[in-house]
């Protein structure tokens, strides 16, 4: 299982391609997924465990992300917006993956449009979610 590192020449798989939106959306899928799997899952479990532990523990958890008047502090905004943007981006590119799995959407123009659409969706959905939370309620 533990393979010995050998210094064989590598084929130039990254440097020879012109960078396009399909490559950005691919690496964004990994980054957002890995981010939610680590930071997001720890926060989710801490939120549930602190609520299960009782009011005092929940208050400590909540205090990490809120100011004295109950609004979000800078940590709360960075994590909250970061995780919702990650979620909507991962969701959009995940749905795009499911479409690509069927063999559809590989024509150059449609592939590029689909990749760009995931970013448009995630930014708009994040804006809509936070507009609803801060203004709409």
């Amino acid at each position: 299982m533990a393979s010995k590192p050998v210094n064989r020449p590598l084929s130039p798989h990254l440097s020879i391609w012109k960078w396009g939106p399909h490559m950005t959306v691919s690496i964004a899928h990994r980054v957002t997924g890995s981010g939610m799997a680590t930071v997001g899952s720890i926060l989710l479990v801490a939120w549930l465990a602190s609520a299960a532990a009782g009011e005092e523990a929940y208050g400590v958890f909540r205090g990490l992300f809120t100011t004295a008047d109950g609004g979000l502090n800078i940590v709360g905004y960075v994590l909250g917006i970061g995780l919702t943007l990650s979620f909507f981006q991962h969701m959009a590119s995940g749905v795009r993956h499911l479409v690509l799995d069927t063999g559809a959407g590989y024509e150059l123009k449609r592939n590029k449009m689909g990749a760009q659409a995931t970013f448009a969706f995630s930014i708009l959905a994040t804006l809509a979610f936070w507009a609803f939370l801060t203004v709409g309620k």
């Binding site: 549930l48 465990a49 299960a52």
Partner: peptide, 10 residues
Amino acid sequence: ATAIFSILKL
């Protein structure tokens, strides 16, 4: 397991 235990406890 911690998450599911917490949900069930609540």
